[in-house]
Design a protein around this nucleic acid. Structure first.
Ligand SMILES: [Zn+2]
Ligand SMILES: [Zn+2]
Ligand SMILES: [Zn+2]
Ligand SMILES: [Zn+2]
Lengths: 167, 167
DNA sequence: TCATAACATGTTATAACATAACACCTACTT
DNA sequence: AAGTAGGTGTTATGTTATAACATGTTATGA
């Protein structure tokens, strides 16, 4: 078991929403995308995505593997990593580098350079839009360098956590 | 041995410079800082910093350990991780999350939220100033969230690598 | 329809990265 | 002297990720 991840609280930037709709929408979007691109949305891939979007929580590969095992799938490491790589390649999953964890994308519609806000107390993670994030990618290209991928992660404490307890 | 890191080429954003001076300056700066803060710049800490600043290359903890071993220090993992944590805490070393590697800071003078440019071919890494990076932290605070630390890493291909070979 | 290529999943083993827990030593404090 | 804090060393283990190979499954297209 992983000792680090036990998220439990909520903050304003982690928007409340009707998760039934959210979940169904996400599944529908990925289904449509896979259909359009002639990719297979296999039971395994569907299950991994469902595990991740179930409660918007970043999960480690081995946590995903446990969940897969509980649902009757193989739970050897390459299974999870391969599916995660695939889903990441198509923008439906992102890796949170600071947590060695994976999270379902919150806006798979548009191509994006996601930024993440991570509460180090509750470990909730929000994927924020570049504009909302306070970070602007003024120029995607550094001089003499072609940027292909950006990683932006902001770690701190959300209001709920900072007001809830003595630091 | 680590198979991933074998950097060898050079790009414009990775500025050429008199590394003898650079090295000596860096050592002097860290010495002064430690003196001022009443911290111990022990042989071990000095050696780790020297290993890292030696050629401005990100090194994995186990590469650092090998180097320590070669220089007569203990090379069990906690040795490296402890010293690295200490040097990071004081801003003289940064971790490159995308590489699980550590690099000596390029501007330890001012407190900074470093951004890194990483060539995925030669694996050279440049620590760039926020302003030069094309990324601006317009507002360090997200609504309802206190940002304590930001991770910004831009991965791509440097001019030298992209012009050097067929992709 | 049969070969074949490409994709998908499964398995074993191992590599790579990181920390826990405890021991020992030194320097400083009271 | 006894106590405290900091630094280093050691053993063991925990956590994250990939290599290599086997098997099954799904297009494709002679
Ligand atoms: Zn939801
Ligand atoms: Zn996304
Ligand atoms: Zn230099
Ligand atoms: Zn720096």
């Amino acid at each position: 078991m992983n000792k680090k991840r036990e998220g439990k609280t909520t903050s304003k930037i982690f928007d409340d929403h009707d998760h039934g709709i959210c979940f169904d929408d996400a599944i529908e979007q990925i289904e449509n995308y896979f259909l359009k691109k002639n990719l297979q949305f296999t039971p395994l891939r569907r299950k991994v995505f469902e595990i991740l979007i179930k409660d918007h929580k970043p999960l480690g590969a081995y946590e995903i593997l446990e969940a897969l095992g509980r649902d009757g799938f193989s739970s050897s490491p390459p299974i999870a990593y391969r599916v995660l790589d695939f889903l990441m390649k198509h923008g439906f999953v992102h890796k949170i580098q600071g947590l060695n964890a994976f999270i379902a994308c919150s806006n798979p519609n548009h191509s994006h350079s996601p930024a993440f806000v991570i509460c180090r107390k509750c470990e909730k993670v929000a994927e924020v839009d570049e504009r909302k994030s306070g970070i602007s990618f003024a120029s995607p290209n550094i001089e003499n360098f072609e940027v292909e991928k950006t990683t932006v992660e902001m770690t701190g404490v959300c209001t709920t956590c900072s007001s809830a307890a003595i630091m």
